[in-house]
Design a protein around this nucleic acid. Structure first.
Length: 204
DNA sequence: TATAAGATTTACT
DNA sequence: GTAAATCTTATAT
């Protein structure tokens, strides 16, 4: 895939994120490209795994029952901005805020396929293992240098954006399964709201 | 004010 | 397979 032009980002439009259907959007983000120019280096890759968090009625969400805190405040803003929070005191997790103002939906980006700025990502991750470069929600933020200070940023650039570069997957190519690490969410922990591209699907 | 637990990763046994 | 790293919020004193 040809590298994106940092001087002319082509982010997907804001209104895309303002959809009411966070499940559909979570699947639509698979194949899109997440790009960061933090630190003056373009790094990024193709989104391969997401999780949907559906605000008030989802026990797995930080915004369950419309719980509003300093940390999750941006979830209540309009769709199309980042929600970055610290997990287990160690990792920054990157989410896409979706839907209209006051409706706290979000999509956790769990993994990307590394494509651009590999050198910078290896260096930030302190590893030489391509498979482990951006394979989890905490590692991909480290590779892209996304931290909690990038909370609430618009996903139309210039620091962070998501581009459509023509890759799209059919439902048959997407695996839905229960979300990770939310055992406390009761029955909601069983909802198949984790979406991955099937391993057998190859991308050029 | 103190404690527990979490949308995780890594290094160790 | 287990433990450690250690920030933020919720709940209980």
């Amino acid at each position: 895939m040809i590298p994106p032009n940092p001087k002319k980002p082509k982010p997907i439009p804001l209104k895309t994120y303002q959809s009411d259907d966070v499940l559909r959007l979570s699947q639509a983000l698979l194949g899109k490209c997440l790009i960061s120019t933090i630190g003056g280096v373009l790094t990024g890759g193709m989104i391969t795994e997401t999780e949907a968090y559906r605000g008030p009625e989802d026990r797995g969400s930080h915004a369950y029952n419309n719980r509003r805190t300093k940390r999750n405040e941006v979830m209540f803003h309009r769709g199309g901005i980042s929600y970055v929070y610290r997990c287990y005191g160690i990792h920054s997790l990157f989410n896409v805020v979706t839907n209209q103002p006051e409706i706290p939906h979000a999509i956790l980006i769990r993994a990307i396929k590394p494509l651009w700025g590999l050198e910078a990502m290896y260096s930030r991750r302190k590893t030489d293992n391509l498979k482990k470069l951006t394979a989890g929600p905490g590692t991909l933020t480290q590779a892209l240098e996304i931290d909690t200070l990038h909370n609430g940023l618009p996903l139309t650039g210039p620091l962070i954006w998501i581009e459509d570069r023509g890759v799209q997957f059919s439902e048959a190519e997407i695996v839905a399964s229960p979300r990770v690490g939310i055992d406390y969410a009761g029955e909601d922990a069983l909802l198949p709201w984790r979406f991955r591209i099937m391993e057998t699907v190859r991308v050029e």
